[in-house]
């Protein structure tokens, strides 16, 4: 039993949360990171939703990797991911209707979140189930952490509250612009700059990742690697 959680697997998790944080380092899944992070609750909700779908799809893809023929790989992954997203959507509607309303159209759009298809393609289709699960946990928590940070900053500056609790609203006029579209771009831009700065300070060249990575979803980076 002990060798289920090995050091290697913990590394996979940590790698996803910090070193290869999907939003702040790999720059994947930008759309939801900008769109739903108007407050901490929504950021956390979206993050955990993606975590759920990522875990399920990574495990499913890893289990089925030997049965899925090469030619229909991408469509199969899309079907698998879309089903988990729909299941998530139905459960959110049933048990957390307020969150469902706040996230709205961005719930079905998890299907096209680059992180999920990218991990299925780059990791789960090559590794065993347990590793894939750990990778999903790492990446999912990394995503959740990033969204929670962005959401908290925007809520704090934009509304003066944090998770709905009044923090600075009493002595500082909230700047509503942080809750709007420009604030989203601005906060995420600054956060990425901070991460870049830290990587530079520690003497490492920041990774030349980026939205080109999205092509991973199409299986192109898969070959490029």
């Amino acid at each position: 039993m002990n060798n289920i959680i090995t050091k290697e697997r913990l590394d996979i998790v940590l790698n996803g949360v910090i070193k290869e944080n999907p939003v702040l380092v790999l720059l994947l899944g930008m759309c939801p990171s900008l769109a739903v992070t108007t407050n901490g609750v929504n950021g956390l909700g979206m993050g955990l939703s993606v975590l759920f779908v990522l875990c399920c799809s990574n495990v499913a893809v890893s289990l089925l990797k030997n049965f899925i023929p090469e030619q229909v790989r991408i469509p199969s992954y899309i079907v698998i991911i879309a089903s988990f997203v729909t299941i998530l959507g139905l459960f959110l509607k049933a048990y957390l209707p307020l969150l469902d309303k706040a996230l709205g159209i961005y719930i079905p759009l998890i299907v096209v979140n680059c992180i999920i298809l990218g991990r299925a393609e780059m990791f789960a289709s090559k590794r065993n189930v347990m590793d894939s699960f750990m990778d999903a946990i790492g990446m999912g928590f990394g995503f959740t952490l990033a969204l929670l940070i962005i959401g908290s900053i925007r809520e704090l500056l934009g509304a003066g509250t944090w998770f709905g609790l009044t923090v600075t609203a009493n002595f500082m006029e909230p700047m509503a612009i942080f809750m709007l579209a420009p604030g989203g771009f601005f906060v995420l831009g600054c956060l990425i700059a901070i991460v870049n700065g830290i990587t530079r300070y520690r003497g490492k060249q920041p990774e030349k990742a980026g939205c080109e990575g999205c092509s991973a979803c199409q299986g192109q980076t898969g070959e490029a690697e």
Binding site: L64, F67, I68, P69, V72, P75, S76, V79, I80, A82, S83, T86, I87, L90, F91, K93, A94, Y95, P97
Partner: peptide
């Protein structure tokens, strides 16, 4: 065949989940 099977299984799962959550919703 594989793709069809995956689609069928997916749809069946969704129908089940929908049946489960519909009354609650």
């Amino acid at each position: 065949i594989v793709l069809t099977v995956i689609c069928l299984v997916a749809t069946a799962t969704l129908v089940g989940t929908y049946g489960l959550t519909k009354p609650v919703i």
